[in-house]
Design a protein around this nucleic acid. Structure first.
Lengths: 335, 335
DNA sequence: ATAATAATATAAAACGTTTCAGAAAAGAGA
DNA sequence: TCTCTTTTCTGAAACGTTTTATATTATTAT
């Protein structure tokens, strides 16, 4: 049996109310009794039962975090950012991986609510927002990260994907490329849609035609990048440049290119979305749109915490962070 | 105000006890009332308060996870393994990053205990085990992952680091190398010690002398691998092969070699400990000791869960998983 | 019809805290 | 000394569940 406040009360010869006030050093207890209580607590090795406390205070100092897969380095960095600010503020994180499965997402959401988390940070896998709506109605503080949801006004922190994608594509165009392949993500995911949109926008800006044969939909996983790249290479008139719209697919593309012994950037220029640790170590070093992953996390966490602490509901905040193009060697020199 | 069991009781016209039994479908409630209660619960949109439940059942279905840094891909995979089996068994994970700081580790430990986690998985940063001892005495189910602690008999799941390291070094020796540099980790960490030990053992087995100038201590971080590599290269008689004992330091070494334009494996053979996603994509593809990271996680989680569910304390289990050498091109061909 | 048994329902205690209203004690002002 | 105020302390309720012991009702056997 763990030591409780009652044990302390008994030993110190006071009521549990005084023990509680002494331990949380609130005013209303004499200096000497306070000292005595503290000493007893120390001696008995008392540790508070936070569960019991939370039940009455209605604060768990826990936040629920729903992402698709911690193994993806993008999410990893984001999570690290979140955990850091959570920890600084005395909050803990419950980590949940959905693998982009809507069912898992909903299941986790129920449990987290049941566990009375003080707030939620969600990288949602769903396109529509019905399951989130009930949370909002229940006034659960919540911020959407990386992906917004249609038809829902709620705090969010995202990257300007359209712009990042436009920059990348423009870069390729300026380098003289006209046959630019793109491997985009699922249209059900906001980042999938937006990054494709940025590509289209860049082409339009430069009055270049949209050629559907150069546009392939991948699944945001390594395998998708791999096989779509192979398909692109098999075209009778293959692209001279390839834009891959997330980190995992870029790895797949890289692998395909390597296996097929296509020289980069001589035979094909390659550009990725989302910079990775090893990008500068690759051969050739990879040019990529770099996302402020860590900051994405810290800012979502800060936003959520401010929301949790706020007495009255504030206005919806939508934070947009700018990605930037990191030019290395995989697109060759300007020509 | 959220809906509680009381509300249901009132609406359904029964006592809270019956509601409870009905909801958890235990026997002792009539078929018709049960249906009525369930219907009311459904209609009111009842969600149980797991906190309250946990307070009485003394089970939170939450496990605390203490690692040094989720950003490190090694831990990432491990964590994913843990989360998967936790989830399958209806458990959640509280994620804690210590950054190898003993203070942080201890602080987290207190909080997790306070939050009444059902068990703990710890990749400890400490060398001694005093802070863990009290947990063991309090009968908190707990498994040590990746690193054991001195003077403590407790469940653990680790990789055979000595053997992995011995294999790597032997490989180099068999390839004809005699001047083998090693960048090992801090001696305070078990993996640091063991991997160095494996290196020494291999040399001894082949009757090769231990040359201290080839032995450098790094910090298990990228920067450490980078600078120690540079130091090794500056030797008047530099090593012909380099063994780097963790993933981050290997990246650093790789970077240093690349910057110094040292050709691998022609001028120096390179072998790393812990295989990484990009290892096969690197130029040259990296030879490395591959650790079963995901399985490390699942097996720790399974062990912990069995411990949590076990009615009586069982015997201490120490699981050791075997790493394997993945030979690619960074050590060249046999000669 | 009566007793014995089984099935169903409930009141109340418990889990370990916080918190509020009020009691007791101490101090101050006259 | 007496009243008034302030300080210190406490009892009891509350948070939302589960669970045990008991009461009530229904069912069966005789």
């Amino acid at each position: 049996m763990a030591i409780t406040i009652k044990d302390i009360a008994r030993v110190a010869g006071v009521s549990i109310a005084t023990v509680s006030t002494a331990l949380n050093d609130r005013s209303g207890v004499g200096a000497d009794t306070k000292l005595r209580v503290l000493a007893v607590a120390e001696k008995l090795g008392y540790e508070p039962n936070i569960l019991a406390r939370s039940l009455v205070t209605k604060k768990t100092h826990t936040i629920g975090l729903i992402i698709s897969d911690i193994s993806n380095p993008f999410f990893t960095r984001v999570v690290r950012g979140i955990e850091d600010v959570a920890n600084e503020n005395g909050f803990n994180l419950i980590l949940c991986n959905t693998d982009e499965e809507g069912q898992k997402e909903k299941a986790y959401l129920r449990i987290l609510q049941g566990k009375q988390v003080d707030g939620l940070i969600i990288i949602s896998t769903e396109k529509n927002s019905n399951h989130i709506k009930s949370l909002v109605e229940n006034n659960i503080p919540l911020v959407l990260l990386d992906r917004k949801l249609e038809g829902l006004q709620v705090d969010s922190v995202v990257v300007d994907n359209v712009e990042g994608s436009r920059k990348a594509t423009s870069h390729l165009i300026k380098l003289g490329h006209r046959k630019i392949g793109i491997i985009h993500g699922p249209e059900t995911i906001m980042t999938g849609r937006d990054r494709l949109e940025g590509y289209k926008r860049a082409l339009r800006e430069h009055n270049l035609p949209l050629e559907s044969k150069y546009i392939k939909e991948g699944n945001f996983k390594q395998e998708g990048g791999y096989s779509r790249t192979l398909e692109l290479l098999e075209l009778k008139n293959p692209p001279s440049a390839l834009f891959v719209t997330n980190n995992l697919m870029t790895m797949g593309a890289f692998k395909a290119l390597k296996e097929e012994r296509i020289r980069v950037p001589e035979e094909i220029a390659l550009i990725g979305f989302d910079d990775m640790e090893w990008a500068s170590l690759a051969s050739p070093p990879l040019t990529a749109v770099s996302q402020p992953t860590y900051r994405l996390g810290t800012s979502a966490a800060n936003l959520l915490l401010s929301r949790i602490k706020a007495p009255a509901p504030q206005e919806v905040q939508e934070v947009v962070l700018e990605p930037k193009l990191v030019i290395r060697e995989s697109c060759g020199e300007k020509r």
